[in-house]
Design a protein around this nucleic acid. Structure first.
Lengths: 179, 179
DNA sequence: GTAGATAGTGATTGGCCACTAACTTTGTCG
DNA sequence: CGACAAAGTTAGTGGCCAATCACTATCTAC
């Protein structure tokens, strides 16, 4: 397998492992195992652990961005908001790790920033802004913030492990689709 | 100093350290240093690292809950929403670690859950629900979800290190206070 | 003053983990 | 064939870290 293909599979494996264990809580060994490759070989493909995390985070943002772009394609008005909500819902239904990876990215940036590393966050803010702008383009100034806010609440509720039948979810659905 | 007082100061120190470093990224040594006590002594006061994190998380929820209760006291209608928004804003202005600790709690629960530990999350969901119910009592069914959603977006934007003059914030303020 | 409890420390250990260095295997082309 | 490169491995290292054990100091009450 070519180095480029390997890098790709490492990033995919890293997304899963980092999503579940966090930056510090995931060993490069765990990623290597999932890829099916020896642990030291990761350091031939990437300069270090942080670089792998960074790529996985970027990929996570890109994937979400793409989902929003696709969902809003060719739609207008009320329909767009509904389609994008549904698209996000089905994204996290079929791959919950992208949601968790998002959360891990947020706290990783916060920790890096607290430790004095500005650069790490800079890259990820850029990735996040692409997603932001995709939503902005689809929904316009008025509804973008609100859409993202509800999205972030979803992230938190899922991360916290509230089951679908918990009252926080029934409250949530009544709020996004008032009768 | 009595053991109870020490436990209290450990929890306060832990909130700061865990907020910035996360669960895995914070050493018990760092907490002990901040308290001004030897590292092994922490294990006299708490059964283990996880127990310290759990207490710090609970404290973080309680503190937020209290802020919301106080802010809504004696107010009605439109005023309550505004007061609670302002209260949260001033909470995180004078102690940003509360916000970061929240985020660390979310991902820590997610990681524990992914590793098969249901119990850890159970306790923290209970703490979170107290905060939820404080908001529910103050704002009612209609606005609770929305208020929390915007709060979670604030958490994310702060964690990601977006500076106050960044356009995501101007977009945010326009959305919560439309002209 | 001494017995017991309470608060606290120093030294250590076993395990994990990111990363390095040196070596091997597998095409591939002249 | 033989040489070169690209893909990949085994073995090892230095550092950190949660948790334990055995010990010390201080106070209080009889």
């Amino acid at each position: 397998m070519s180095a480029e293909e390997r890098r790709e599979s490492v990033i995919r494996a890293a997304m899963i492992e980092f999503a579940r264990g966090g930056y510090k809580g995931t060993s490069t060994e765990a990623i290597a195992k999932r890829v099916g490759v020896s642990q030291p070989y990761l350091f031939r493909l990437f300069p270090g652990k942080q670089a792998i995390f960074l790529e996985a985070s970027r990929r996570c943002c890109e994937r979400t961005t793409e989902v929003f772009r696709k969902a809003s394609e060719g739609l207008q008005g009320e329909e767009v908001l509904h389609a994008m909500g549904a698209a996000y819902q089905s994204l996290i239904a079929d791959d919950p790790d992208v949601l968790l990876m998002q959360m891990q990215m947020y706290v990783a940036v916060a920790s890096a920033e607290a430790a004095g590393d500005r650069e790490f966050g800079e890259t990820l803010r850029a990735g996040w802004m692409e997603m932001y702008d995709a939503v902005l383009l689809a929904l316009g100034e008025g509804e973008t913030t609100q859409f993202l806010a509800f999205g972030m609440l979803v992230n938190v509720l899922v991360s916290m492990g509230f089951r679908p039948d918990h009252r926080v979810w029934t409250g949530f659905y009544e709020s996004v689709q008032p009768k």
